[in-house]
Structure formats: structure tokens, C-alpha cells
Design a binder for these strands. Structure first.
Lengths: 117, 117
DNA sequence: CCTACATGTAACGTATCGGTTACATATGGT
DNA sequence: ACCATATGTAACCGATACGTTACATGTAGG
């Protein structure tokens, strides 16, 4: 996965409305743009732009059927990140590392290192 | 995890330099701001701002020791998303769903539904 | 003390984001 | 043909993102 793709993916996920759209489309595969719009207070155009962002990140794929556009959720990009994280970060949450515990231990190691140079 | 926290988390991850900073700090726990800066072409201030973003997202925790700030990676926020995804999206990548396959199948189901109303 | 160094803050310019209103296109149904 | 419906595009606006330069603070160490 190219770095730019990752930028687009995380950027797309960095908005509550877009994450909600993903949830909606995931639970209503093949739904239309208007269907999604009904669940939001914002204008249809705002939703449309969110859909464009999600499509650019490949989190949504669409297919035009007549005059309506059918929306489908695509988990592939998420799975790529998922796979990377399971391998790359596995050591960090292996023991359910809590924030505080981690910092404390790291600090103590540092101090110990200073004490005996 | 609150929605705003998730916004901050994904926003923080949506920049290649910030992801690189995470990698660096992860491999050099307790390193300083200047240490990180050495790995980038951009100015020290730019790096500093990236660090602030990462800290706001709790992906980095820091501790001031004298005049230097020690940086530590924190996987906790990532683990929260990880956990959510493994449960919520598991059905989608259970069979290693590819983009094309998924759309095709969904469409065929739709057409079949139309054919026999 | 005084100098060098590590870090932080302020002010600013440009680009992108997120939303709006107004207008345009295209398809379905009567 | 006509009209309602579903979607898309254009122009615009305020807020935020990302980077810069200049200046400020605070600590280490001779």
C-alpha cells in the first residue's frame, strides 16, 4: 500500500459522519445516495462529498444502475492496515500495554541506565 | 472511545511524516525531539507540530527530563480501533474478500431480487 | 556568569477541508 | 411529451492544516 493511499484512507476515517456512512452502507449493501442522506442533518451535497472521499479511499465502491448509484462497503483497505498492525505493532499490545504502565517502565529503565554508566 | 478521540487518532495517522515519527519513536523509546528532527528534511518546528498532533491523539506520551523531552510510543489508542475492527468488520474479511468479487456478488443478488419480485 | 543547546511560542501565508446555495444533467413513470 | 426524482457540478465562504521565519524560555556545563 502506497503512502498516499494510506493518507487517503486515514483521512477518510477521520470524520464521524464518514465513519457513520460506512456503518450504514455496510448494513445496507446496494443502498442509494439518497438513502444515506436521510440519516443526516447536513445537506445532500455534504453527504455526496463525504461519499467522494470514501470512494477515493476505496472504502466504498459504487455502481450506477439506471439513475441511482448503488453503494457498497469495501473492507479491503482496512484489512491492509489491519494486517500491517497485527505484525508491526503486535509486540506492543501483546501484554495489553496500558499507557501509564508503559511510560513508567520506560522511564525506570532510563534512570537505571543513567545511574550506572 | 469517544468520537472526537477517534477523529484525532485517524487525523494523526493521516500524514506520512507522522506515521514515520511513530515508527522512529517506537524503535527509539525515550528519544528527544531533536533526535526525531534529524530524520526529516522539514524544519524542526514542523516536526514539533506533528509531535503535538500525535500527543493530542495519545499516540505519543512525553516526559520532560531536564531540558530534553523524552518521547514514548503508545499503542493503546490503536489497540482500541484494532479491537473494534476485529469484532465489527470480521465478517467482511473472513473469506479474504476482494473488492471486485464483493461488488459482483452484491450486484448479482440485486438483479436476482429484481427479476423475481 | 555566560554561552551553547534543547525546546517552545507567535505571527503569518498558502492550501485543503467541510459546508452552503444555485444550477445542470439524466432517468423513470404517467 | 412532461414532470418528478436521483444525482452531479460550480462557485463561494469560513475554519483548519501545514509549513515557514523570528523570537522567547529554560537548562547544562565550563
Amino acid at each position: 500500500m502506497v503512502s498516499d493511499d494510506m493518507d487517503a484512507l486515514f483521512q477518510a476515517l477521520a470524520h464521524a459522519d464518514r465513519r457513520r456512512i460506512l456503518d450504514l452502507v455496510k448494513s445496507m449493501p446496494g443502498c442509494s445516495v439518497n438513502d444515506v442522506t436521510k440519516y443526516f442533518q447536513t445537506s445532500r451535497i455534504a453527504v455526496l462529498k463525504h461519499l467522494q472521499v470514501l470512494e477515493r479511499a476505496r472504502l466504498l465502491v459504487t455502481r450506477k444502475e439506471g439513475r441511482v448509484r448503488e453503494l457498497y462497503f469495501n473492507a479491503a483497505p482496512i484489512q491492509l492496515v489491519y494486517d500491517r498492525w497485527t505484525t508491526e505493532f503486535s509486540s506492543f499490545w501483546a501484554g495489553t500495554v496500558t499507557e501509564l504502565k508503559y511510560v513508567t517502565e520506560a522511564l525506570e529503565a532510563k534512570k537505571k541506565q543513567k545511574a550506572e554508566p
